[in-house]
């Protein structure tokens, strides 16, 4: 589903190279965990997948279902089925959450040539998804993410993911800022979306999240490259020996 080939990318503004020859393949149905120390390029990778303009790809390619996405803007990528759950979801004053959900859902449907959702249908879907994430519907009347706690923002991200039903979910540090109860709710939400035709890239610094979202593969990112790949036991090794131990071995 996702093939990243020899990807090189830099910060557009100052030319600092962050991703330096990254290779990664994630198959449909697979949950791939990306782990790595601070500054290894984890968040950058998530932004590049979503199409953020602040980064410039200088070499290599990203194929999504065999098609290069590098020339697509973020909205086109989203309509193709790529979803990024942000580490720090934006607060957008003045945009009501419900209105935003409606516009996002219907924009994607329109780009795919589908009919817009009827209001009642939309409401029913939102209600169901919010219930599963134990979110108060009152929150959704507020402006998008404004005044939400860290945990509420993360839940709102997963709510959007449930509603948009993407094919590739990229979760950037979804565990940061969550207490253990919230983490379980969010992980349950993510696990419910696991399916044979959906892939997930779970980016995390700590192994903790992977106890709840158990990955099929684990990849260690270091200085902009995948330096080591393995199954879920690699995450435990990282936890036990630290990045230094594992990286020393890799280097």
């Amino acid at each position: 589903m996702l093939e990243i080939k020899n990807l090189h990318a830099r910060i557009a503004e100052d030319g600092t190279e962050i991703i330096r020859g990254l290779n990664l393949t994630v198959k449909a149905g697979e949950v791939a965990a990306i782990m790595g120390p601070n500054g290894s390029g984890k968040s950058t990778l998530s932004y590049i997948l979503a199409g953020r303009e602040d980064y410039e790809v200088t070499e290599g390619d990203i194929l999504f279902n065999g098609e290069s996405i590098l020339e697509m803007d973020p909205a086109e990528r989203a309509a193709k089925g790529i979803f990024l759950a942000f580490q720090y979801p934006m607060e957008i004053p003045g945009v009501a959450t419900m209105e935003f959900l409606k516009v996002a859902l219907n924009s994607q449907r329109k780009q795919r040539g589908e009919e817009p959702l009827k209001v009642a249908d939309l409401l029913a879907r939102v209600k169901k998804a919010a219930g599963e994430l134990q979110m108060d519907m009152g929150m959704l009347k507020r402006p998008l993410n404004v005044g939400f706690s860290g945990g509420e923002k993360k839940r709102a991200e997963i709510l959007q993911m449930k509603l948009l039903e993407p094919k590739l979910c990229v979760l950037d540090e979804t565990d940061s800022g969550l207490d253990i109860d919230a983490l379980k709710i969010v992980a349950d939400g993510v696990n419910a979306l696991r399916s044979p035709d959906r892939a997930m890239v779970v980016i995390t610094h700590y192994q903790r999240l992977l106890d709840y979202i158990v990955p099929d593969s684990v990849h260690v990112l270091y200085k902009g490259q995948v330096v080591k790949s393995g199954d879920k036991t690699l995450a435990h090794t990282l936890e036990a020996e630290g990045y230094a131990g594992v990286l020393g071995e890799a280097a």
């Binding site: 199409g51 953020r52 780009q111």
Partner: peptide, 19 residues
């Protein structure tokens, strides 16, 4: 903000209008 809205599939012109 623009990136966030576009990352949810809202085309640029519409996202700008919304903001």
């Amino acid at each position: 903000h623009l990136f966030y809205l576009m990352a949810r599939g809202i085309p640029e012109k519409e996202a700008r209008g919304l903001l």
